[in-house]
Amino acid sequence: MKRHLWLVLNSAIVLACLLAIWQTAVLLLHIPKYILPGPLLVAEAVQTRFPELMHSLLLTTEAAAIGLVSSIVVGVAIALVFAQWRWLRQLLYPYTILLQTVPIVAIAPLVIMWVGNGIYSVAIIAFVICLAPIIANTTQGLISVEENLVHLFLMHNATPLQILFKLRFPHAMPHLFLGIRISAGIAVMGAIIGEFFAGSSRVGQGGLGYAITYSSNQLEIDYLFALVLAATVLGFLFFFLGMFLEWYFLHNWHESKRSDLPD
């Protein structure tokens, strides 16, 4: 616990130093604020436009969360099907890799053309970017069960569904959470890319991605910095939430999540 406190304190000191250097550099070198605003100006922008910033943040959070959660639901369902029918997996698995390599920037305009502007197209774009890691990791977990464990279940005349839900699925949990952790990190990115193309039809009503394009057009560089900061924090929070869920569900039994237990 004391060690953790030290780590936090150290990072805070490093951050404070960086901010101080940044501010001094801007002042001493007379950098104009439309090129690089100092941290004080950014802080001021955050303060004066706080409601607007929060609105954008919430909108992006919502789109990223919808995309992530639906990718988990759909991805796990697809992985369960893949685990049950080997021929289907061999037939379709290559396409999930295509899903991963398709440039999201290229399909975003397509999605908007099909679904229209607004949060749903943004969520769909986040969904597409999140899906592949969930499918790949969960499938891997479901099919990599030790043969003897399957034999053990068979010796008790277990049904295929019992093998799937009492053996394969729990075994795949660590893999699934690895997938969730990866996807959580990129869900926010997917949502912001989506918003570049389909933020909102009204000025000041869009998510972070929309606000970023708008601010950069208007050369509101201080607010742009505030938006980038918000997007970074949001991505971190998603990632952290994924880690927390992983710890919460697995720390009892999983080797890599070993907490200090009395023995």
């Binding site: 003897n148 053990l152 010796m155 075994h171 009892n252 999983h254």
Partner: peptide, 11 residues
């Protein structure tokens, strides 16, 4: 059937 290694379910 008792297998090589305990083959317990870790969860």
């Amino acid at each position: 059937f008792i297998f090589q290694d305990a083959t317990l379910l870790p969860w």
